[in-house]
């Protein structure tokens, strides 16, 4: 099953490299959820993440001839993360343009895959914790944020993360370790927002 999927992906990549938009869109459908979630966690904003995602896929299509094999997922996620940081840097340089984004609420009321079994109170507590976690991610330095999101949110292996950020495994380990410690420290600084059993 996995082999057939990989073969299918290989064919789609080849066709996309030959200019087939339809084949590339098959790849988009396969990875758009992953790409959007990475972009969302890295940027912390839905609209910005969507824009970054769209731009990333367009860049990926135009750069298909540069794809030389290996993990297509890692190659695509590298484009996504780089695009996210380009946009973040752009907004830092031109804060007026992103005023709307800054004023946007950070809640995740819509768009999430809600667990309908949760009680409203549990849902509210979980939302608060999720918001706090997102704030903890947002305060991380850029390099640590990427590694943390890819590892702990998207569950990529160390090897895949190393391919995405184009760094050796040791760098991935050290960045992830520092990122986790920072997030933990941030949560401890906001104990009052943690669930009761963890305060």
């Amino acid at each position: 099953m996995l082999l057939s999927i990989l073969l299918n992906e290989f064919d789609m990549i080849k066709e996309a490299q030959n200019g087939s938009v339809a084949a590339f869109n098959q790849l988009v459908m396969t990875y758009q959820s992953l790409a959007y979630n990475v972009a969302y966690r890295v940027m912390g904003n839905r609209e910005s993440a969507a824009d970054a995602c769209q731009e990333s896929f367009l860049k990926a299509y135009k750069s298909m001839h540069q794809y030389q094999g290996g993990s297509f997922k890692s190659w695509l996620l590298r484009i996504v993360t780089n695009t996210c940081y380009d946009q973040i840097r752009y907004r830092i340089r031109r804060p007026a343009d992103s005023l709307e984004d800054l004023t946007q609420e950070t809640g995740e009321d819509d768009g999430r895959w809600a667990n309908h079994d949760e009680l409203p109170e549990e849902r509210m507590l979980r939302d608060e914790l999720n918001d706090l976690l997102q704030q903890a991610i947002n305060q991380l330095p850029q390099d640590q944020r990427t590694v943390l999101v890819l590892s702990d949110v998207q569950h990529l292996s160390y090897q895949e993360i190393a391919e995405v950020i184009n760094q050796p495994l040791g760098t991935v380990k050290s960045r992830l370790s520092r990122a986790r410690h920072r997030v933990r420290d941030f949560l401890l600084e906001h104990k009052e927002l943690l669930p009761n059993q963890y305060r």
């Binding site: 367009l58 895959w113 809600a114 997030v183």
Partner: peptide, 28 residues
């Protein structure tokens, strides 16, 4: 504490994409 932090991060919900990101001929 680190184990709990990682567990919380792992429990962050997946967010549905607001729109499909497929490309059209005009885009490319």
């Amino acid at each position: 504490s680190l184990r709990q932090t990682v567990a919380w991060l792992a429990s962050l919900p997946k967010v549905a994409a607001p729109r499909p990101f497929t490309l059209s001929e005009a885009d490319v």
